[in-house]
């Protein structure tokens, strides 16, 4: 949204060579996230798109150390998370929060909204004890709820309202970065628009930075400044959103964009990918996309494509882009 501002702003989060492997048996490991590096600049929204199983959610959790990464470095505001332990890490966690996908599973069903938010506020001593109740009520109003909702249990709310509560929880500790993991995916269109607007408003008011993970390319385009496209645990393309959506370079990005059903458009020629996403247990050699790629050549199965620059801030991993 403000490209000129971004160019001279600092990176708030730096991810370097991040890997997250899950052993499934003695011989096999799922490489859910495989050697991913990128930066998030302060005040921007970095979108992460990809289909199920591409590792985008695992990546979000590894960055927050909810599932500690297998290898790699996560540096937040100059501090390397891997060197921090226990209390120190928890303190840094205060700066990085997460909004989860499932508005039903992500709230403790046996705690009132007020109790849940109050617990977090007290844990981090955000405000003096006697102001906690007030702070919680203001927080609820900030996310578009009513102060008296603090006394209710999660099951008394609709999906959209629960997602507002989830956002309030993330905001409670006054973080700098929020990872939104499919935060609007489970919602109806009209409610989704409400939540997207809320996220936008909060970002401006509180100078937040978002890492916005979603499978929905339209939503990501709407909210992001820059976008990362992931496929089978790897980043295949990264660019500022205008470049990415106007001139996608990676054949996968092109296919993704072509596959979205668009409203009110005449029937058109589309790139329809053949076959399924390969199992993450058996990631194809060379370029992981070569099994479905419409322009794949012999070299694609043999050699991993280089991550190279194709434009201002536009990077792609493809032999032919």
């Amino acid at each position: 949204m403000q490209p000129e501002k971004r160019s001279n702003s600092e990176s708030i989060l730096e991810v370097k060579g991040l890997k997250k492997y899950f052993p499934v048996s003695r011989k096999h490991t799922v490489k859910a996230v495989d050697d991913v590096s990128f930066e998030v600049y302060e005040g921007e929204t970095l979108g992460v798109v990809g289909e199920s199983g591409c590792g985008k959610s695992t990546m979000g959790r590894a960055i927050l150390y909810l599932q500690p990464p297998t290898a790699g470095q996560v540096t937040f505001n100059g501090k390397d998370l891997s060197t921090l332990k226990g209390r120190e890490r928890r303190k840094l966690r205060k700066e990085m929060q997460m909004v989860f996908q499932d508005p039903y599973g992500s709230l403790n069903p046996r705690m009132t909204v007020g109790a849940m938010l109050g617990e977090i506020v007290r844990t981090h001593r955000i405000v003096p004890k006697h102001e906690v109740a007030n702070y919680v009520r203001e927080l609820l109003v900030d996310v578009g709820m009513k102060p008296e909702h603090a006394d209710r249990y999660p099951h008394e709310f609709s999906g959209g309202q629960r997602q507002r509560i989830s956002i309030a929880r993330a905001l409670a500790v006054q973080p700098k970065l929020i990872v939104c993991d499919e935060a609007v995916s489970a919602l109806d269109v009209s409610v989704q628009a409400q939540i997207l607007n809320l996220l936008r408003k909060l970002k401006q008011e509180r100078h937040l930075t978002y890492l916005f993970i979603s499978h929905d390319l339209s939503v990501v385009k709407h909210i992001s400044d820059r976008v990362i496209v992931m496929y089978l645990g790897k980043i295949v393309e990264m660019a500022n959103k205008h470049d990415l959506y106007a001139q996608p370079r990676h054949p996968y990005t092109q296919a993704l964009l072509s596959a979205i059903p668009k409203m009110g458009e005449e029937k058109r020629e589309r790139i329809i990918l053949k076959g399924d996403v390969p199992s993450p247990l058996a990631v194809p050699s060379g370029c992981p996309f070569h099994t479905r790629c419409p322009i794949a050549q012999k070299v694609c199965a043999e050699r991993k494509p280089e991550w190279h620059k194709v434009g201002d801030g536009h990077y792609v991993a493809c032999h032919f882009a």
Binding site: L64, G105, N108, I120
Partner: peptide
């Protein structure tokens, strides 16, 4: 495995509190 536990960890709640106040009641 439920997300609310993950959310509590992300919010920096201590393990003891998560066990006693979040998991046990459920």
């Amino acid at each position: 495995e439920r997300e609310y536990v993950e959310a509590a960890i992300a919010a920096g709640i201590s393990h003891w509190r998560i066990m006693l106040r979040h998991i046990l009641p459920n």
